[in-house]
Every structure is written in C-alpha cells, then in structure tokens.
Amino acid sequence: MSLSESTTNLASRLTALAQRLGLSGRVARMVFERSRTLQLPFQPLPATADSIWWLAGPPLHRLVNLPRDALSGPVQEDKAEARAVLMRVVEQEQLSFADFDLRRIDGLCSPPPEIGGMFSTFEEFAATQTCRSVRIISYKDFLKTISTALPRFLAGEPIELCQASWYGERLFWASEQYGESFACAIAYARLRGLEVNLPAQLTRYRISQYGLAELKQHYHVLAMPVQAWSDPSFMGLLLDNQLPYARLSLLRNPGAPEFLLLPKASAEANALGEGLRLSGAPDVIAHLEQLHKRTGG
C-alpha cells in the first residue's frame, strides 16, 4: 500500500468515526480533528487510597452543596446548568444513633500531619512519632486523652461522624482538630476492650446511579492538566469557536487537574470532548462509574 493510499484510508476511518459520533457539521469536524491530536501532559486520576485520612481521597461530598461560584467559565447560564447536574451526582443521608460504639471509627477528617503516610488503621498512626507525645498507660490517661478530643465526652455529648461510599465502610470522625488524641484514645480502647459509647450523628454520602447517568447523558467531563489553560492550541479550540463549557477545581493537591464540562447538546462542544478523550484526557465520568461499581452502589 502506498503512502497516499494509507493516508486516504486513515482519513476515511476518521471521517467515519466522526459521523458515528454525530459530528457532521464542518466546525464540529474541524474541532474533533484538531483536538484529537493535542499533545497535553494528561495524568490518570489518582486511585482512592485505603487510608484513615478523609482528605486523602476525592472530595466528592462537596458536590452536594456546590457553591454557586464553584464553577468558572464565560457564560453564567452554562455554569448554572452544569452545577445543577453536578449537585445530583452525590446523595447525602443523615442518621442518628442513641448509643454508638466509638471503637468502630477508623478515620479522621483532620489534616494529615507533615510526616505523610496513608496509615490504614489508628493503631498504625498511634505508633508514629507524631503521636509519641500522647501517652496512655492507664484508664485515667485514657479519659484525659479522649476528653482532649471530646471535651464533653463525660457529659455524653453526641459525636459527629461521616462516611462515603467511595471509602467503603470506613467511618470518620468529623472534626478538624485533635486527630492524634482521638486516634490514640480509640486505639487504646480497642486494645484494652473498653466500651466507649456515645450518641452519634452520621452523615453518609454515596454516588447516585441516576445522577451519574444524567451527567453522562448531558456532558463530557474531562480532567485537564493545569498546562492546558495556557496552551494556545487547546485554548484556541475552546475560545475561538465560542464553545459552551464550565470548569471545576475539585481536587485539592497542588498541580491537580481541573474538570472541564462540555455539554453534549452542542455539536462543537461534543466534538471537543470526543477529540480530547482520543488524545488521552482522563474521563471523569468513567472514573466515577468505576468507584460506584467497586463500592457496590
């Protein structure tokens, strides 16, 4: 086969692919052709770690009460429509317990210490240098330590907890302070077989199958590297053609990708989404679907 025949066959296959994707307009085909060849430093979305740290995983719970100004983009209506769909992806449920065994808790919402480390149990964390100053060798020490974390412990004040389907069954203490004291106290209680019960309020989050299906029906959601927003080829496709879009910064870690939402109702925005996927952009919806399946949602 000659080079010209090979080029012709490739062009024919790409044209057929564009037609299958519904990219029949001239501008849509141009956007698709250019976006699929973009060279951007895409990185896979991080896996959810088996860790005691709530902050170590994706902050999907933020979608429930997503602020009105959380999304950026040139058109207010596009941002508002994207926000409305995103807020239905995660469901929230409130549960109350009159007598909850605190030894079941094995997660913290406080910021991880600078020593790093994921730690899968309180016992692992309690054995680190960070917790060395928390000494518990008697029941009196235990009461002092847990009362540092929970000043109204002896009065039986309810404790606030949270749980998310993407973390499995792990329960987290919903406080941003005194994580070391709480973890050490609970580890000691488990070691000594101490009953440590309090009333509890549990906020449970889970990915909604229907909300996720709605998002998939109406949007491409792609994880774009920070370099994309200064790349002239990508920004030219996005802005020169006046494509509808919205951006969401959800992940916390430095240099984390931003989520680009492209409405499929727009032929040109849909073309950009399909092209970016072919060029290697991580599909956020596919990632969420895997999380949903893995957790038995």
Rank of each mutant, 00 (worst) to 15 (best):
K140P: 11
Q163Y: 08
G116N: 08
E157C: 08
F125R: 06
V134E: 07
F122G: 09
R103N: 15
L102T: 04
S147N: 10
F153C: 01
F100H: 07
F100G: 06
R132I: 10
Q92E: 03
T121Q: 13
T128Y: 04
R103Q: 13
R88S: 04
C109F: 02
S133E: 14
R152K: 12
F100N: 05
R88L: 02
R104V: 07
S120D: 14
L108D: 00
E157N: 09
Q94M: 04
R132P: 07
S110R: 00
S120T: 15
E114P: 08
F122H: 09
R104I: 09
F122D: 10
Q94R: 07
A126P: 07
I136N: 09
S120L: 13
R103C: 13
D106R: 12
E93N: 02
C109M: 01
A98E: 14
S120I: 14
V89K: 00
L143T: 13
G116Q: 08
C109Y: 01
I137H: 12
S133F: 15
Q94S: 06
S96V: 06
Q129Y: 11
I115L: 13
L108H: 01
R103T: 15
Q92A: 03
Q129H: 11
A127E: 13
C131I: 13
M118C: 14
I105H: 01
G117P: 06
L150Y: 03
Q92G: 00
L161E: 01
T121A: 15
S120R: 14
C109Q: 00
D101E: 11
G116M: 06
T148L: 12
S110C: 05
A98T: 15
Q129M: 12
A126W: 06
V90R: 00
P111L: 03
L95R: 08
Q163V: 04
L102N: 04
R83A: 01
L161T: 02
Q94G: 01
E91W: 03
F153D: 01
F153A: 02
V90L: 00
I137R: 12
Q94C: 04
L143P: 08
E157Y: 05
I146P: 07
E123L: 12
I136K: 11
T148S: 09
L95D: 07
L150S: 02
F122W: 09
E114T: 11
R88A: 04
E93F: 02
C131L: 05
G107N: 04
P151H: 03
P111F: 01
S147C: 12
L161D: 00
S133G: 15
S138P: 10
R152F: 11
I115M: 10
F100A: 06
A149M: 08
T128P: 02
D99T: 05
E157K: 08
G117W: 08
F142P: 10
R103V: 12
S138K: 08
T128L: 04
R88M: 02
V85T: 03
S96P: 04
Y139L: 13
E114C: 10
G156K: 02
E123H: 13
L95V: 08
S147W: 06
R152Q: 15
D101K: 08
A84C: 03
V90T: 00
L86Q: 00
Q163F: 08
T130L: 11
I105C: 03
A126T: 11
L108V: 00
R103H: 09
A127W: 10
L95G: 07
L102S: 06
R103I: 10
Q129R: 14
R135F: 13
F122Y: 13
E91N: 04
